[in-house]
């Protein structure tokens, strides 16, 4: 009995869960626009073009919509604007380069700029002054010589 129940479950579940279609069209033209749009399925951080989840509830219809608008003569920018109008700015895969979101692009490079300035400051502060050489202390020099001798002997 258990065997039959399992078989029935198998048929039902595989029917429900595995049945799919390959309607996820992806031409280079669709990829071009899809790469600019975030997949908002909630399970990935990919774009509409790169989301690989078969039958994804966001990227699959998204690709179809892009294809439809392209065949209706819409430009790539118009398609992207249409997605933004529907979903808000979160429809874009990367933050826009204007207004507050511009900060997302600027800050990492500003960080490098500040870091370079800090290195410049550090080098300026801790660099030995030019034209000066360290005074040689004979006792220290002897210590170093004996250390070198010892290590060379060990190496041989």
């Amino acid at each position: 009995m258990n065997r039959y129940l399992n078989k029935l479950l198998l048929v039902l579940l595989t029917g429900l869960c595995l049945a799919q279609t390959t309607s996820d069209m992806l031409t280079p033209a669709i990829r071009g626009v899809g790469d600019r749009l975030a997949c908002l399925c909630g399970s990935c951080k990919n774009t509409v073009a790169t989301c690989q989840m078969l039958g994804c509830h966001y990227s699959a219809p998204g690709r179809e919509r892009i294809a439809k608008m392209q065949s209706a003569g819409s430009s790539d920018d118009a398609i992207v604007a249409d997605f933004v109008q529907r979903e808000g700015k979160k429809a874009l895969a990367v933050p826009p380069t204007e207004g507050f979101p511009l900060l997302s692009w600027v800050m990492p490079f500003a960080f490098i700029g500040v870091g370079l300035w800090l290195i410049y400051w550090f080098v300026g502060r801790y660099r030995r002054p030019a034209g000066f050489t360290p005074r040689i202390d004979q006792a220290a020099l002897d210590r170093y010589h004996s250390q070198i001798e010892k290590e060379l002997t060990r190496l041989e």
């Binding site: 975030a38 908002l40 790169t50 700015k89 979160k90 895969a93 990367v94 826009p96 979101p101």
Partner: peptide, 30 residues
């Protein structure tokens, strides 16, 4: 810088929503 870029990208959607009230996506291409 790499650490900051990753951290910044991770928390920027939260910061952006707090400041502008609008959600944005920071996905793999960024």
């Amino acid at each position: 810088a790499s650490c900051f870029a990753v951290l910044w990208g991770t928390i920027f959607p939260v910061i952006s929503e707090a400041v502008t009230g609008e959600k944005i996506s920071v996905d793999a291409p960024f």
